[in-house]
């Protein structure tokens, strides 16, 4: 097991230590460790199949590791009950994936308001806050449209708005620009990192694109289920 990598300056908000996860005979993670501080944008890089998504899912409490620990603010996530864990995901975490994450039957505004509605925020208030986030992400014009009626780039910006609307401490993003062209990908990254920095949210960003990683503060490279750490911090 590798020692958890704790970047200089500040207690980490989210830590994964010696994470192992096998799917049948495949060891997807084989002793991966990451520590993420508040407000930090960390790029998780590495070749296809190296375990990036599995690592992200373990950190986010979506996948339970076979061994190793995930600590959020010093609390062990895998020791929590299912309902505690899903409350953590709902209130402290935000998620952006490559595609297919918006509810097709809802308008974009309703999609962004959804996480707030699940927290029992009143409709009017939830939609007001959702509209604010759509504006910040420069997609006010799609508020009344359904996901099937907008472009991929617009959809990703709506997804970023939805991930940030609850004011999460950590945003987990798995190839958020994977389906976009360069210009739209850049725009999503600029808006995502800008918004995250303003709200002091940490971002765990899985990407295999170096230009996308250019928006991060630091990278963690995953290879064969293990992490390699580079010490360059901005």
């Amino acid at each position: 097991m590798t020692a958890p990598h704790t970047p200089a300056g500040g207690t980490p908000l989210l830590v994964g230590e010696g994470l192992c996860k096998a799917f049948g005979p495949t060891a997807a993670l084989d002793g991966a460790s990451v520590a993420i501080r508040a407000g930090e944008v960390v790029a998780i890089m590495g070749p296809s199949g190296s375990g990036k998504s599995t690592l992200l899912h373990c950190l986010a409490g979506i996948t339970r590791p076979d061994s190793g620990r995930v600590l959020y603010q010093g609390q062990e996530v895998s020791a929590m009950s299912d309902s505690e864990r899903s409350a953590l995901r709902r209130t402290r975490f935000g998620f952006v994936f490559q595609f297919g994450q918006l509810v097709p039957e809802l308008t974009c505004l309703e999609n962004v308001a959804l996480p707030l509605r699940l927290e029992r925020v009143r409709r009017r208030e939830a939609e007001r806050r959702a509209a604010e986030w759509l504006e910040r992400l420069e997609v006010t014009d799609v508020a009344g449209k359904r996901p099937g009626e907008i472009s991929g780039g617009q959809g990703q910006r709506v997804a970023v708005a939805r991930a940030l609307v609850t004011g999460p401490q950590v945003v987990f993003a798995d190839e958020p620009t994977g389906a976009l062209d360069s210009l739209n990908g850049e725009r999503v990254m600029r808006l995502l990192t800008q918004a995250a920095r303003e709200t002091r949210a940490a971002v765990a960003l899985v990407t295999h694109e170096a230009r996308v990683a250019g928006y991060s503060d630091r990278e963690v490279v995953v290879r064969d289920g293990r992490t390699r750490h580079m010490e360059h911090t901005r």
């Binding site: 170096a210 990683a213 250019g214 928006y215 490279v221 580079m230 010490e231 360059h232």
Partner: peptide, 9 residues
Amino acid sequence: RAEHLRLMR
């Protein structure tokens, strides 16, 4: 790689 990424940032 780290050096390239540093410059890219």
